[in-house]
Computed example of a mutant assay.
Amino acid sequence: MTLDDSPIASPFAGEDRAATIRDHLRDAIVDRRLAPGTKLSEAEVGVLFDVSRTVVRAALQALAFEGLVKTERNRGAFVANPSPEEARQVFDSRRLIEPGIARAAAAAGLTPADRDLFTTLLAEETRLLDERGPVARRAEIRASGDFHLLLASVAGNVILLRFMEELVARSSLVIALYGNSGASSCGHGEHAEILAALEAGDGERAAALLVSHIDHIEADLDLRSTTGLPLREALAR
């Protein structure tokens, strides 16, 4: 892979550079702009962001902790390529965690601001359903994940929210890679039902709907090969 002589301009002066690089790489991975198995060269990422390899290494280690990157001794870091078994474990974990989140969110109750955020997310999903192409598809997957993260935020448990951030990132990668017919599209109506249960304060119904929703997403998975973009193009804004 070759690069031109000009690095990507750094937009994050004064911020945590490793965290920002991590976020850019995570977005490119979850959006499938970087294909599973793509080598993430510390030197190349460093050139792209005009940072040292030490900063890049910290970003890659954070992504490895999240399960989005795998590191191999003497070979370097690569975009994770989740196996069917790993995908199944991700959704098994969500079935264990999310019903409890739904009950906690219903018990906490939705504020007017929460309702506005949920309504905005559902409207965005509706808009994306009317669009076509891989860009809209990736945006739709992201919007679907945001619904579940907002639910975890409403529940008010910071630790569970962090778990969900990792699980949603892994789920988004799996869905983008192996989704057969558009799992997030199928789940849009289910999101509305879950929200209605939350608004009614019915945690048990919201929990049951979430389990069914996760089952439907997992049932749509079908192992497929994928291709991605070169590193520079994938990270270009």
Rank of each mutant, 00 (worst) to 15 (best):
A152N: 08
A152M: 02
A152I: 04
A152S: 12
S153L: 12
S153D: 08
S153T: 14
S153F: 09
S153K: 14
S153A: 14
V154Y: 03
A155C: 00
A155I: 01
G156E: 00
G156H: 03
G156A: 07
N157A: 08
N157Y: 07
N157C: 13
N157I: 08
N157S: 12
V158P: 09
I159N: 06
I159R: 14
L160M: 13
L160H: 10
L161K: 01
L161I: 07
L161C: 06
R162Q: 15
F163W: 12
F163L: 14
F163A: 13
M164A: 14
M164Y: 03
E165Q: 15
E166K: 14
V168A: 04
A169P: 10
A169Y: 10
R170P: 05
S171M: 13
S171Y: 06
L173K: 03
L173V: 15
V174I: 15
V174A: 06
V174D: 05
I175F: 02
I175A: 07
A176D: 12
L177S: 13
L177Q: 13
L177F: 02
Y178E: 02
Y178R: 06
G179E: 08
G179V: 09
N180L: 10
N180H: 08
S181F: 04
S181Q: 10
G182Q: 00
G182V: 00
G182P: 01
A183Y: 01
A183E: 05
A183I: 03
S185D: 04
S185F: 05
S185L: 02
C186S: 10
C186Q: 09
C186V: 13
G187F: 03
G187V: 07
H188D: 10
H188M: 12
H188C: 04
H188E: 10
H188W: 07
G189F: 08
G189S: 13
E190G: 12
E190M: 15
H191R: 13
H191L: 10
H191T: 11
H191Y: 10
H191E: 11
A192S: 14
E193S: 12
E193K: 14
E193T: 13
E193N: 06
E193L: 14
I194T: 11
A196C: 05
A197Y: 05
L198N: 02
E199L: 11
A200M: 06
A200C: 01
A200S: 08
A200P: 01
A200Y: 01
G201K: 00
G201R: 00
D202S: 15
D202A: 11
G203S: 07
G203R: 00
E204R: 11
R205M: 06
R205Q: 15
A206W: 05
A207I: 06
A207C: 01
A207E: 00
A208E: 04
A208C: 02
A208V: 01
A208T: 13
A208N: 02
A208W: 00
L209Q: 00
L209C: 04
L210K: 15
L210R: 15
L210P: 03
V211P: 00
V211N: 00
V211T: 04
V211W: 00
I214Y: 04
I214W: 09
D215G: 14
D215L: 05
H216T: 12
H216L: 10
H216A: 15
I217D: 03
I217Y: 05
I217P: 05
I217S: 07
